[in-house]
Structure formats: structure tokens, C-alpha cells
Design a protein around this nucleic acid. Sequence first.
DNA 1: TTGAGCATACCCAATAGCTGGTATTTTTAC
DNA 2: GTAAAAATACCAGCTATTGGGTATGCTCAA
Lengths: 211, 211
Amino acid sequence: MEKVNSTKVFIVDDHQLVIDGIQALLKDESDYTIVGTSQKATEVLDRMYDLNVDILITDINMPEMSGIVLTKQIKLRYPGIKILALSMFGDRHVIKEMIEAGINGYILKNTGKVELMEALEKVSKGQCFFSDEVTKVLVRSFKKEEEFSHLTNREIEIIRLIEQELSNKQIANALFISERTVETHRKNIFRKTGTQSVVGLLKYAYEHKLI
Amino acid sequence: MEKVNSTKVFIVDDHQLVIDGIQALLKDESDYTIVGTSQKATEVLDRMYDLNVDILITDINMPEMSGIVLTKQIKLRYPGIKILALSMFGDRHVIKEMIEAGINGYILKNTGKVELMEALEKVSKGQCFFSDEVTKVLVRSFKKEEEFSHLTNREIEIIRLIEQELSNKQIANALFISERTVETHRKNIFRKTGTQSVVGLLKYAYEHKLI
DNA sequence: TTGAGCATACCCAATAGCTGGTATTTTTAC
DNA sequence: GTAAAAATACCAGCTATTGGGTATGCTCAA
């Protein structure tokens, strides 16, 4: 199993089955050796110390510590480790944050073995790899670049107050502005986020981590 | 690979990686033969026809058709097929619905190979298998049985529709009841949950895993 | 210095949602 | 077989939200 020139891979995912799955997929690939796995992002940092890991495959949505935080920590303490993000979703903001955190690749869990191998190969060579869907999001994002959904600070502040169950009047009092102003902000918020109700807005806010 | 007495398994999951993973895990287990896989629940029904499947492993959260609907359909048309549900979450209501739909087992994706094998073994024998976490939910549910929030099924149904951003009128249309009835249900829901706005209600729903 | 973007503010009409009732018919449970 | 619980339905009135606008200072950058 251990091979001198093989790439050392470490897997972090809170779903053991995904870990086992990837492990099974890579078992026969002598180019890759899995040197460790973990269900908790929090314990990964210390385990990196003596393993000489080449590629860290990490889930993004994990309890306790997200893949984003983990990536930042890893890149800070072990800049040599390449990171391949593995996620259920191709959310624009998450992708953006992960890229800013310094990932080398981003694949979705609905991709298969072939793409995983391709991703590992590219990443191990120092190149980048993104799933088609992720690339699509990137391109779209690049084209419109915030154009339609750039919420101002004031708007985000108001979304948070809405989430606190304040009515327009209460928000107006809290911020020392007129109720009319709050109404205008709400209108702009709905327009920018493409939502039409508080419910939709809050789902948007949760998704985009505004709250 | 094909073995006469081996149990025939079919896997449905919208994440190809999970499929590949399970496939890899079962590759060396001669007791199980994977006779097919699919990323779309909608196409599974027809493919069951001549495969003589023993166990269907199905994800629950899938686009287009949920595992719940799929289970019901399968049980209707192929009552002999055993169904092992595979999910990210141990949501009380989903578990309940799946059990009502007739599943034989329910495991979480954060369980490993050992548990998967155990589950397959029990299910293939006609027994049931539930992950520890799922069992815990079942027991808790049995003990308190709605005690603290005793929302009725209808009420929960309505909460879910509210979460889907439907207005009272739309909910009324969707459920073939009068708008007045929906209003009454809403009143009762607010009273029972101790909330006063949709926002509060949804937070309550998320906390109590009603959604 | 001019224009874009932001925060502020107002008006009006229409719609939706909330409050606090009452009441009938099923269903379920004992 | 009866009583409780759930689901259904209606009314009236009130408040809040929404969507259509318009408009004024202010700041910052081209």
C-alpha cells in the first residue's frame, strides 16, 4: 500500500461513509496513499504535523469548524499542503470564500470517480481543478460580478433586524430613521436579492451567510 | 463478480461520489452484487422491472423525486424489494415518513463501512436496521410523543408550505381547503409554538427540526 | 464637477396577515 | 358509544406589508 512516490492524501469529512467511499476508490490507485482521515476538522490541524500530507481533501459543510476556516488555518501553518474542497453545493459565496482561502480545487459530491482522479492529478501537479458546475458559477459570477446583488451595510443591518423579528416600525425606532426609509430599504433588499417575502429573504440570508 | 447466492443491490443517490464510494466498499464483498445505480429517482422505478433487486439503497434528499416518494412507489409496485434509506440527517419527521412509507432500514451518511455492512445484512434477512442516532430520535419521539409542542400533522404540513413561501391563499389552493381554515391553522400554530411572526415560527421550525 | 451610488424620506393604493371570536364535521381514543 | 381532538369554515375589523412611484442631500471617484 505504501509507495515511495505516491501522493499522500488526507481526508476530512463529517460523513464517515464518504471517507470510506473515497478510501475504497483510491485503494487500488498506487499513485495515492491515504495517510489519514478524520471526521472532525478541529483535530486535523495537529495531525498534519508529522504526516507530510500532499493533498487534503476536505468537506466544506461540517459542524464545529467549516472547511473554509480549516483551509485558512492549514494554508497558514502548512502552506505546502494542497487543498481539494468537496461539497454538496456549488454556492457562489462559498466558492468565493474558499478560493480566497486558497483552495486548489473544488469538486461537488455529485461527481464520480473519474473526475475525482482528474482533480487529484491536477491538484497534485500544482494546477487547479474545478467541477464543471463550479466553473459555471465562477464564470457567471465573473460576468455579473455582484452587479445585481451587492447589498449595502445598511441593508444587511436591516436584514438582521428583520431576522430578529422586528417590524418596520421597530426597525425605524431602533435605527432612528423613518419607517418610510425602512420600507425603501426593504424594497431595495427584495429587488437585489430577487426575493419577494420575508421567508425567501431569510432563506437567502442564511444561504449567503449574512446572518 | 456475479455470484449465484449474492444479494442484489441497487443504489440511488444524486451524488455520484456516494454511489462510487458504496460501490467500491461492496466490491470485495461477494455476498452483495450491485446490479445497478442511478442518480435520478425518477428513472429507478422502470429499471427495477427485470433486475430482480433485493435491496434498494436510496438517498432521501434528492431533487425531482424524494426518497420518500420513491420508497412509496417501490413498495407499491415491488413489495418484495427491501429498502435501506441513506440520509445526511436524522430528521424526526423524515424518519417518521420513511417508516410509514415502509423502509427496512435507515442509516446516516456519517456512519462507516462496518455499519453499512451490518445494515445490509439485517435488511437482507428481513430484519430492520437503524443507525444509533436514528434510534435515539425514535426513542425520544416515542417518549415525549409530541408532548411539548403537539403540532398536528396538518399543522406541520402548513408550516412547511409557509417555509416554501406560499401565501395563505396559495396554501389553501394547494391543500384544497379554504383560506379561512389556513388562517385558523396559522393561529393555532402560533399559539402552540409561542411565536408571533413567520420569522419566529420558522426559527422555531428549524430549531425543532420540523423542516 | 459631474454622475453614480447610498441613505434618507414621502405618498398612495392594494394586498396580506393578525386578532378574536364562533361553529360544524370528521377522526381518534378510551 | 361517547368524548376529546383535529380539521374544517366563516366573520369583522384592524394593522402591516408590498409595490408603484418621486425626491433630496451626501460622498467618493473618474
